[in-house]
Design a protein around this nucleic acid. Structure first.
Lengths: 188, 188
DNA sequence: GGGATTAATGTGAGCGTTCACTCATTTACT
DNA sequence: AGTAAATGAGTGAACGCTCACATTAATCCC
């Protein structure tokens, strides 16, 4: 028998790129099949439908990003260093695989409710670091969810503006330090 | 002849609510007509199609919000007060008309490129205030677009988290002061 | 005043297209 | 030979939009 794994990976890569470029709803199965150079029916050998494809792509990349952030964070001791490391990782992840990042960024609302609240994910990792920092007195006490949202807001909106209408010209990588500083100041 | 303006307003309100709830692509003309209690063809008396309806709803509400923010901002002298006033207005606007706010928030990417860069809009108002503050030495000099994105990120992500999976429980109105403080600290 | 005229507004069945998905058949590998 | 993978024409449903017709109210004319 043939090895379907390489085909599946081809579908994943192609779908991720198209989903990131045009959005899920605007991407048709024909689009994916044509771009990947496969037949339309082939996708259904690997996923039950478009919805499952979108969900799998989301949840796998989202939890992987969460795990990577957790690994990164553990290398440092202080909240400030942890946040800086996570922000740098975010920026690196965006630079190295914009498709993955853009897809996660723009579809998180559609999948959020279905996400298991215990599964590692970027939001929870940031939240844990911030909660710890509050308990240790590194940053003032307050609602950890509000603080987490503020920190993530700083990172994500800068990336968003960079993606959008050319408002920000510099590369995200070169802005990582400034972003990390803004994140820290917002909650410290 | 009959007065079509009331029908148009009914269409606008209904479409805005459905677009905010389900998204533009997921809302059909039949949905809007049924909910508004009118015939499908009626919408085409007032708009050339779904696309124009979505665009008009966006640009009118977006520029109106920009103008309101500018009016608010002018009532104060210092950057800190201006930003606090604008953040409070944002929070008030969200509380008073969540549909309008959610629609603008979730569709801005689709319409941004078509937006005239001189038309007043929330981003530009924040940016002008921040640029002024940099020139006056009220906040450290830097890329005004990066600073603007950080400030907007703090506001928008907190509202976003509140909208989403019940992470933030408190009302946005009651958080306005904390949000404004976070915005200011991020760039000051 | 009130019937006739006119034009804007409202209606909804129907059209053409697009799209996700199916399945009988073919291909490729062990 | 046997089996999993791949194919792509076909299907039915959904959707945006059209258009011939109905309704409404302002204007005109006697």
């Amino acid at each position: 028998m043939r090895d379907g794994r390489t085909t599946k990976e081809l579908i994943d890569r192609t779908a991720l790129a198209l989903f990131a470029e045009k959005g899920v709803k605007e991407t048709t199965i024909r689009d994916i099949a044509e771009t990947a150079g496969i037949a339309e029916g082939t996708m259904y050998r690997h996923y039950s439908g478009k919805e499952e494809l979108a969900w799998r792509l989301f949840v796998e990349n989202y939890t992987a990003l969460g795990e990577a952030l957790a690994t990164e964070e553990r290398r440092f001791a202080t909240a400030r260093d942890k946040i800086r490391a996570m922000v740098h990782y975010f920026c690196k992840a965006f630079t190295e695989d914009p498709d993955r990042f853009v897809y996660l960024f723009f579809t998180r609302h559609d999948h959020m409710l279905r996400l298991h609240p215990r599964q590692p994910n970027p939001y929870l990792v940031f939240r844990r670091v911030i909660r710890q920092a509050m308990n240790r007195g590194e940053i003032p006490k307050g609602d950890p969810d509000v603080a987490t949202s503020m920190v993530l807001g700083v990172v994500l909106q800068v990336i968003d503006s960079r993606l959008l209408g050319g408002r920000i010209k510099r590369s995200i990588a070169s802005l990582a330090d400034d972003i990390a500083e803004g994140c820290w100041k917002a909650v410290a």
